[in-house]
């Protein structure tokens, strides 16, 4: 039974929910870390057009970008025990936290791969040629010359990915993870004040997202300071 709207409850809920923010951030950090590394390995065959692996990467990316994150969560959550069961390991009692991290990592990898690929594509081919011309090997040219510039190019998109991934983690409660949203669900059950809980949740998520956005904006400015870019009239301060 829903109770009458009570503004004061929001203020009470915010600190209760914020106490679970570390869990949310933990899922986010781990999944971004693993996702980024996996994304790099997915991007490489796409960039270098390596036969077969390229097709597999394409299918992988397309699948994870084309299915809802909640469906992916359940597939991984039920899929891991089913898979490990085949080799006789029982993981059905596994903490759903790990399934959530795995899902978000797999999903972030698909997004990261496309972002990295676009970043590498935006680096002038001449950079690679110049690296070759002074005797760098293919991998040296990629690691030392192309990738650093590609990551700078990709940085704004990475920022967007982090923020959208933060919002995605709010679905982890559906497989029973006790993160901020999970705690929100239990608060609703115990208090019968759904609206207040959701408003409190939105306040915390929004605050974190704004903080991230600010951080990425400042970081981007610092990183781009030394990069070559074409200065247009739009960059000039005309008063």
């Amino acid at each position: 039974m829903e109770k009458a709207f009570d503004m004061n409850m929001i203020g009470d809920f915010v600190p209760t929910l914020t106490a679970y923010l570390p869990v949310t951030l933990y899922i986010l950090t781990l999944s971004l870390l693993f996702g980024f590394v996996l994304g790099l390995f997915l991007a490489l065959p796409r960039i270098y057009n390596i036969p077969i692996v390229n097709q597999l990467a394409k299918v992988y990316i397309s699948f994870f970008r084309g299915t809802p994150i909640m469906v992916q969560l359940f597939i991984v959550f039920y899929g891991i025990p089913a898979l490990t069961g085949l080799i006789g390991i029982d993981t059905s009692k596994m903490d759903p936290f790990y399934a959530a991290v795995a899902t978000y990592a797999l999903s972030n990898a698909a997004a990261a791969a496309e972002i990295i690929r676009a970043g590498v594509g935006s680096v002038d081919k001449g950079q690679t040629e110049a690296a070759y011309s002074i005797g760098l090997s293919g991998s040296q040219a990629f690691r030392r010359i192309v990738l650093p510039q590609a990551l700078v190019q990709a940085f704004p998109n990475m920022g967007n990915m982090v923020i959208s991934s933060l919002k995605d983690t709010s679905l982890a409660f559906s497989i029973g993870v006790m993160d901020m949203s999970g705690r929100g669900q239990t608060l609703i059950t115990s208090s019968n004040h759904s609206l207040e809980v959701y408003i409190a949740l939105s306040i915390v998520y929004y605050a974190v997202a704004v903080l991230f956005e600010w951080f990425f904006r400042v970081a981007e400015k610092r990183i781009k300071k030394n990069q070559t870019r074409i200065v247009t009239v739009f960059d000039m301060n005309i008063h």
Partner: peptide, 10 residues
């Protein structure tokens, strides 16, 4: 030495 220089921008 390249026409478009191709200095490492970073």
């Amino acid at each position: 030495v390249f026409q478009q220089y191709h200095l490492f921008a970073h």
